[in-house]
Design a protein around this nucleic acid. Sequence first.
DNA 1: TTCATATTTCTACATTTCTAGAAATAACGA
DNA 2: TCGTTATTTCTAGAAATGTAGAAATATGAA
Lengths: 116, 116
Amino acid sequence: MKHDLPLALDITRAASTFAALGSEQRLHVLRVLVRAGPEGLTIGELGARSGVTGSTLTHHMKILAAAGLVDQKRQGRKIICVGIDFARIEDIATFLMKECCADSAAPHAKHGESHG
Amino acid sequence: MKHDLPLALDITRAASTFAALGSEQRLHVLRVLVRAGPEGLTIGELGARSGVTGSTLTHHMKILAAAGLVDQKRQGRKIICVGIDFARIEDIATFLMKECCADSAAPHAKHGESHG
DNA sequence: TTCATATTTCTACATTTCTAGAAATAACGA
DNA sequence: TCGTTATTTCTAGAAATGTAGAAATATGAA
């Protein structure tokens, strides 16, 4: 059962990235961080704005960082969190589209169902 | 079973959709299903091709179906699984891009902006 | 009805993830 | 050095998720 495609993300990496995004709390933290812009926020500020603090926030940030979705760097006594790596996001979106439109017959011309 | 989910993803729905994709095994099952094309596969065939079977497969399919990523319908004695709802995929990709590229694409405002 | 096939539900257990308090570490200033 | 601030690591219990066997349900055929 080996179907190896030259994808930007392998299936293992993709799964853990999706899993990192698969928490409402982390998605919220990520949103706050993204909205803060490229300057980033300290952990303290991020906590204050998102409502997720302390070791719980550290825990979630680790998961996001492991997925390559945010970056952290020390600046004196503070940790600046910068989110997000846009290339990573494009990878994820690309993974989805490639997987889903793969070589299944004709690339989704067949799907005429609408939900709206 | 036709799903009936709203097209726009709120943060809760987005998180559970990402969570549904956040398993290597489910991603693999999904890939097999997509590659099978619009005719779909029976649960049995899907199990044979993916290596995930029985109640474990049922469990994962339920999660994928709840996220609106696959559809199942009975055909006589068999259940045909059809993956994937491309509109749903586009939603996810769009959610990512919107959330993540949102305001930070614009000339970033200083702290003090409120978001919700 | 009875049998065979296809899939799900029930159930239980193992593993992972979440949450958070307390102690530890790192950097700065006096 | 010591004290303060900022953040992490350690630790542990709670909750969620994953896995799978056995019984149950649904359909079709004889």
